[in-house]
Each structure stands twice: as C-alpha cells, then as structure tokens.
C-alpha cells in the first residue's frame, strides 16, 4: 500500500476527465462501455453506494478487516498486560486472598481494550486507506461537482493513451451531461496550478 502523500502525487499526476451522468444506470452503462473499449475508469463519485460501479472500479476486497483483527489482538494483549504488570508483577497486593494473577477478574478490561483498539484501527485505518482528510482534492474544482453528493454520478476516466477529442466525444455519446478535465502534473498538492481545470464541454442539445 502506498503512503498517502505518494498516492496523492500519483493521483494528481494522471491526466483525467470527470464525466457527469444523470442517473446510476447511465453511469454504470457508460463505465462498462468505456472499459470494453479499453479506457481506464479510475473511480466513481456517487451520492449513494452503487454496487455495480464499485465492482468495476475497485473489484478487489478491502483488507481493512485484517488490520482490525491485528488491532484487536494488540488491544487484548495490552489490556491483559497492563493488568498483569500492575497487580501481579510490579506490586502484588493480597486483596481478600485472591491470586495476584486472577484471570477471570481480568477478562472485562481485556475485552474492553480489545474493542477499543480494534475500533480505533477500523476508524483510522479507513481514513488512512482512503487518503482522508484531503480537503482540497482537485475533484472539488470540477464545475458542478457539488451535485456528486446530491443527484449526479461522476466517472473518473483516464486520458492517457487516448485522443482527448475522441474520448470527450465518446463520453458525450454515452450520455455524459458534462466533461471536465484536469491537466497532467508531476507536482503534488502544494502546487496551486495542480488543480487547474479546463472549462466545461456542454453537449449540444
């Protein structure tokens, strides 16, 4: 897995088109046809989860659950380890004749620590894998992108290896309401020009 900064740089270095669609079915159809013709569909931005687009764009299963398992394991060991270290190893204290290492009495905190560590791993593991927070992503510069959270479906189409005009025309033919592009840049997010966007190409009605 790439470091977020490297991944950001790689994401920004790619020349892409953002194609806007009016419905999930239109976006799914277009994405399938694009893939058939050998164009890369890198990502989809949708107001609600669309299973077909996810299968197309990111078919491999997330491995986050493995990290969560490891996180939980570390949590359980930490919880039990602290209890052992405090009450059995560093300062054993006879309270009511109970053994210094009283496993049944140590289970609740072991369990709570396991849940706590696993949950923190799930939350921050998600943020890490998604590369969030990234407040000034170039996508937000795309005209009309605010509707990606409302009622429009955007596809992120790779421009490399394709003729720009032909690809643009193809997207419009597939039902895109608008096509916006970002130019290729080698420099990551700090470059203000990295988020420059070409004007909208509205299809002729």
């Amino acid at each position: 897995m790439l470091e977020p900064a490297k991944r950001h740089a790689r994401e920004l270095a790619r020349p892409v088109f953002y194609a806007e669609f009016a419905s999930d079915t239109a976006a799914v159809d277009a994405a399938r046809r694009l893939v058939e013709r050998g164009h890369g569909v890198l990502d989809a931005f949708t107001p609600r989860p669309v299973a077909a687009l996810e299968e197309l764009v990111a078919p491999e299963r997330s491995t986050l659950n493995r990290s969560v398992f490891v996180g939980g394991l570390i949590g359980a060991c930490t919880g039990l380890g602290i209890e052992w270290a405090c009450n059995a190893w560093d300062y054993p204290l006879n309270v009511g004749g109970r053994p210094p290492f009283a496993l049944p009495a140590y289970i609740p905190i072991t369990f709570e620590a396991m849940v706590l560590f696993a949950s923190l791993t799930a939350f921050f593991g998600f943020l890490h894998r998604a590369g969030l927070p990234w407040l000034a992503h170039p996508a937000f510069e795309v005209p009309g992108f605010e509707r990606a959270s409302n009622d429009r479906f955007f596809l992120l189409v790779e421009r490399a290896g394709a003729n720009d005009e032909e690809l643009q025309a193809l997207l419009v033919e597939l039902g895109a309401l608008s096509v916006s592009g970002t130019p290729a840049r080698e420099t990551p997010r700090r470059d203000p020009d990295a988020v420059a966007v070409t004007p909208n190409t509205e299809p002729a009605e």
């Binding site: 107001p47 997330s62 998600f126 927070p133 990234w134 937000f140 959270s149």
Partner: peptide, 15 residues
C-alpha cells in the same frame, strides 16, 4: 474530511 462519495473509498468504508 474531503469525502467525495468515491467508490474506492466506499469499499473500505463499508468494511
């Protein structure tokens, strides 16, 4: 946090 409904994010998000 810069959420943009990305399908790549949703895959991890759901898990």
């Amino acid at each position: 946090l810069g959420w943009r409904g990305s399908a790549r994010h949703l895959r991890h998000y759901r898990i």
